[in-house]
Amino acid sequence: MKRRDALKNIGAAIGYSAVIPTAFNLLQSCTSEKEKWTPLFFSVDEAIVIKNLVDLILPKTDKTPGALDVNVPQFIDLYAYNVYVEEKLEEYRLSIDSILKALPIPETGAIDLKYEDYDNLLKKYLKASKEEKQQYISDKNITYEALINLRNQSVWAYKTSKTIGKDVLAYDPIPAVQKGCISVEEATGGKAWSL
């Protein structure tokens, strides 16, 4: 059986959470040479848009690496290519297409989009008022749903990366002692636990 078929069967049979160990392997297999990334699922324009949106969703800070530093766009591309079944692929393709249609892409392609174009899109949908969000939901706005999904995928991929798991989150590969009734500050220095 091919690896792709095995991943699809695992995901379909057991569900989203069962794919997590396999997803770790996918994330670790992403190349660290971002310039040489050739998307397997996304088109060139889609890859450019996803990369820029993910960078805005999880930017690099003084204390933490950004989504681009841990290859989140590459992971999302590999995950869609290796795990989604045909029906899910079509649905995902439509959602990504809705994001591209919401951007003012010039004739020269997504490469010429400006930072403000991406920022305005994210502000419109992800920083919308409660009433606007309710309207997007009631209208079944595909772009809104696609951006929520992209944000969720990005955070999931980011938190499951080796770099974030070991260097940013609290990490103990062999937890030996259970301490009850202590503060998070005392237990992990205020950090969330790595998976």
Rank of each mutant, 00 (worst) to 15 (best):
L53Y: 04
L78F: 11
K166N: 13
F75Y: 13
Y118R: 01
D55W: 05
L150Q: 02
I10R: 02
K123R: 14
V19C: 11
K63T: 08
L122S: 11
L94F: 09
K130M: 10
S154A: 15
N141A: 13
K191R: 15
W37Y: 10
I76N: 01
K162G: 06
A23D: 01
N120V: 10
I142S: 12
S95H: 12
L27H: 06
L89C: 14
P175H: 02
S161Q: 02
L26M: 08
E86K: 13
I99W: 03
K124T: 14
D112E: 14
D62R: 00
E91W: 02
I111V: 14
Q74C: 10
G15F: 10
P106C: 09
V168D: 00
F24E: 05
S129Y: 04
K140P: 06
Y84P: 01
N152T: 12
F75D: 02
I50Q: 04
S95Q: 15
A67I: 01
N52E: 09
V184G: 07
T143W: 08
N25H: 12
L58G: 04
L40A: 07
D167G: 03
K159A: 00
T108D: 14
D62G: 12
L94I: 03
Q134P: 02
T188P: 06
E33I: 08
G165K: 04
T108V: 11
F24Q: 03
Y171L: 03
A157H: 07
F24D: 00
M1V: 06
R4V: 09
V54E: 02
L100K: 10
K179L: 15
I182P: 01
A13Y: 14
L26Q: 00
S154Q: 05
G66K: 02
A6E: 12
Y125E: 10
S154Y: 06
Y81P: 05
I148P: 08
V72P: 05
A146Q: 00
I111H: 07
Y115H: 15
I174M: 06
N25W: 06
T188W: 03
L68R: 03
P73W: 02
C181D: 03
K191N: 12
V83R: 02
K8G: 06
K159M: 04
V184S: 09
D55N: 15
R93C: 05
G189I: 03
N25A: 13
P175K: 07
